[in-house]
Structures are given as C-alpha cells and as structure tokens.
Design a binder for these strands. Structure first.
Lengths: 116, 116
DNA sequence: GTAATCTACAACCAAATGGTTGTACATGAA
DNA sequence: TTCATGTACAACCATTTGGTTGTAGATTAC
C-alpha cells in the first residue's frame, strides 16, 4: 500500500492533535516565535492548565517540543511532523489521480472508428 | 491571519475524521473504487454498525458522500476536502518558511531597503 | 409469497477529551 | 528572606468517541 509510510498511531496523534482550533493556533504561534507556555496561555480564554494540556497533546504528536529556560518552558514548533502529515495527504491525492488516469484510459480505449 | 481560509469547525471535522486508521483506510478504499457500506464493512473486524458510524464521521467531514443504489448505499470519496486539508498544512509550512527567511535576514545583518 | 441482504437507528458501555480547580514546588525578583 | 511567577500534576466533571447488540424497515433474490 502506498499510504503506509508512517506508523499508524503516529499519524493518529498528528491528525488528532490538529483537530482542535486552539492547538492549531498554538502551533502557528510557536512557529512565528518560540514562546513559553504561560505566554501562550495568555492568548486564550481558558485556564493555564488547559493550555498546558493542549501543549502536551501537541508534544505527544511531535508537533512541538519543550525546552526549559529557567522557570519557563519554551515551546518550539517542529514542522517535521506537519510536513509528514502534508505528504500523507498528498499520497491520497496521488491515489485519486491514479484512479482518474485509470478511468481515463478505460474511456479512451474505445475501438477505433466509433466516432461519428 | 493567513491560516484562516476555512471555517474552523469544518477543519476540526476533517482532521478529526482523519485521526483514525480505519477511517483513513475507508477513504483510500473509496478512492480506489466506489463501494457499498457493507462491502467496505467486510474488510474490517468490527461490526457493520461501527463501520457505518465511521462512514458517517467521514460524511460529516465531507470526505465522502453516499448515494443510494437500490438497497445499497454507495460510498464515494470526495477528494476536495482532502485537498483543503493538504493546503492548510502547506500554509503552516509557509509560515515556517517565512520565519526562516526572517531569521536569515536578521543573521545576515542586511536591513532591507537600505540600497540606493 | 418467503427468505436473505442492506441499511438505519436506538440503547448501552468503557475510554478518551477538553475543560475546571486546587495543591505543591522550583525559580527569579524585591 | 519573602513574594510573585511559571510549571507540574492530581482529582473531578460533562461530553464525545468508538465500539457493541438488538430491532425494524426496504429492497432484492428465489
């Protein structure tokens, strides 16, 4: 199977992590600039602990990493995982394109001389 | 915000739908060939009802559509939604690339627009 | 007709999710 | 030292998720 280059549970985690608007925004923020968890937390209406959990989900999916700096925990984006997900989606598009070709061939394989 | 072209809850649904290996396989199968729900269900160890629910999740995310044919319900892939998700991920990669450029500029110590 | 097939849907369950509050502890600032 | 800040983590709660079984209704096959 073409679409089987990554460990399935790893993909599960990446997509599941992306399936929340707050987490997608955290990723974006971390990509724009490395930020501490509390700095990120200020942006959202939820509690600090909630943001902490969101970051943990992103970390489990390898979408971000954390690095201690004094008492702060700095969140850094890891675009590698994102790229993997992107390539997986492209693989699905490839399947679709192949199918389109296959159908196209079948349609074009009509016997000659059948045109009016 | 650059990454805000789709309705957030729509994106939520797409990624959440993709976050399950069975559903990803259903998408793949439906892309390869349109199939009825029961035909799909035969491929997996779970109950028919479970597969039915998975298809419903995919339908809610607009990743597949169903079409009645007699007593069967034919599942058709809708690669449009997949492509949207793929483009969203690419948008994140763009953010990262922009940041890399920005940092590169800072490091090269050449402020823009200083040339005569 | 009767029987088999395909689907819809409800009810139920265990586990995961997304949030909260509260407590504890380490670190930096005064 | 004392106080504020930043984090970790547990406990709790409501809702969602991913599965089950069971029942019922269409449609097709015999």
């Amino acid at each position: 199977m073409v679409v089987h280059e990554l460990d399935e549970t790893e993909i599960d985690r990446i997509f599941q992590a992306m399936a929340d608007a707050t987490r997608r925004d955290i990723i974006k923020q971390a990509m724009l600039r490395e930020q501490s968890v509390s700095e990120l937390a200020k942006r959202y209406v939820m509690s600090f602990a909630a943001v902490q959990k969101h970051v943990a989900v992103l970390e489990r999916a390898s979408l971000v990493t954390k690095q201690r700096r004094g008492r702060e925990q700095i969140v850094q984006a890891n675009p590698e995982s994102l790229r993997r997900a992107a390539r997986l989606l492209e693989a699905y598009e490839d399947i679709w394109r192949e199918r389109a070709n296959r159908i196209g061939e079948i349609l074009s394989n009509q016997p000659e001389g059948t045109e009016p």
